[in-house]
Design a protein around this nucleic acid. Structure first.
Lengths: 220, 220
DNA sequence: CTCCCCTAGTCAAGGATATGACTATTCAAC
DNA sequence: GTTGAATAGTCATATCCTTGACTAGGGGAG
């Protein structure tokens, strides 16, 4: 149940409405947690009922009224308690990686497109994170901000997001290039794929890897 | 519903029992998907009922009997269908990042310990992934294997896992160093933190971090 | 003038994951 | 000589997360 703590952590940087939180927790932006609007509104309601956040209604002229939430003392205590006990290890769960895992048994063209698309998304996030970091540190240089700026927390998580997306982009580019090369090799001279390494698959014939129609053959 | 496809992808590399799958999908090992044993047994049962995998019973002398599963033609077709349609973007969801996000309002000592612990875990996974990669490519050099080896899929996902954990380790180390420095600065001369003189966190013993009441206030 | 997007928030339902416990046998250590 | 880890697998419950839809007003593009 870390969503509640993610919400509390996000609200440390100032009052936010459910809607603003929802934008911050969006897939395209979130650099330390992700959640959908519905989850956030529900979690805010629970947090408020438990006294960990408090909201105040703000009426606007041109927009619907909103409720701005902030962390209460009890909420901060809870967050500190959470920060003190052990973190569960995080793990990878990515559609695209599943597809790449199966790369040798699956249509190469479609996969390459998806990997390239992901690279572009990573690039976009890199730009975004760079902008956010610049904005956070203001006039100060990075070293200086990190040493002496107030609130490094968000800066540090954003750095992780940046490094993650850079890794993502680099891997996607390399992977796309590799898959393209291998696909070209198979399409051109058919003898290019060497069979070496671990012979782990029992029912697999010698058919060339990649290419949609003739991939099958999981014998028994 | 990508777990089923992750299972199919994992079974492409040869027959596996539920138990072996469970080990492969464990937090400490999984480099493209993670799941608990219960989930996997349940998913295998569903997949078998739908004819996407088939299992055969293998009686062992010293160990309990097991069922080895392999992907059927229908399963491969399903996996190919999955690989062809769009991947949903992946996202970050990490306890530790939540805590770092709140770093300025939370006990520094405990947090630093956790970040260092995570760095050590990352290091262990790096070693593991390097061993796995070496084993996969056998005698071939990396470039050669990537160009001509059969089954690059698992190699590529493992490369992603490796890069991810390297990024993790580097970020954890840097973060730990930064938090240590800032903590020392606060503990030593209190004037070291620029901004509004809001000292991040008092050391291990003293009372609450960053006074709660003045958290709020965001304009507009 | 209409359509669509943005702000702001809510409801219901179902699928996916996590927590915790439980059966059995075997090998190795203490 | 009993505890503990590893193999092999199952059950039930609870919470979490996702999908899809819906209200309602304002602003901008065409």
């Amino acid at each position: 149940m870390a969503l509640r703590h993610a919400v509390l952590a996000a609200l440390l940087d100032g009052e936010l409405s459910g809607y603003q939180l929802a934008k911050a927790f969006d897939v395209g932006v979130a650099n330390f947690w992700h959640a959908l609007p519905q989850q956030l509104y529900a979690e805010l309601a629970r947090l408020e009922k438990e006294g960990l956040v408090a909201g105040r209604r703000v009426v606007q002229e041109t927009r619907p009224a909103k409720r701005l939430f902030h962390v209460t003392d009890a909420g901060l205590t809870e967050l500190q308690r959470f920060a003190a006990d052990a973190s569960k290890p995080s793990f990878i769960r990515d559609d695209l990686l599943v597809k790449v895992q199966a790369a040798d048994h699956v249509d190469a063209g479609a996969l390459i497109r998806q990997v390239e698309e992901r690279a572009a998304m990573a690039e976009a996030k890199i730009d975004l994170f760079r902008r956010i970091l610049r904005k956070m540190r203001g006039d100060l240089g990075e070293e200086e901000f990190i040493r002496a700026g107030r609130r490094v927390g968000p800066y540090l998580t954003c750095l992780r997001g940046l490094a993650f997306e850079e890794g993502n982009r680099d891997w996607c580019r390399r992977t796309a290039a590799i898959l393209r090369d291998r696909n070209a090799a198979v399409a051109g001279g058919n003898a290019a794929v060497a069979g070496e390494g671990t012979p782990a698959v029992p029912g697999e014939s010698t058919a060339p890897a990649a290419r949609p129609p003739e991939v099958a053959r999981a014998g028994r």
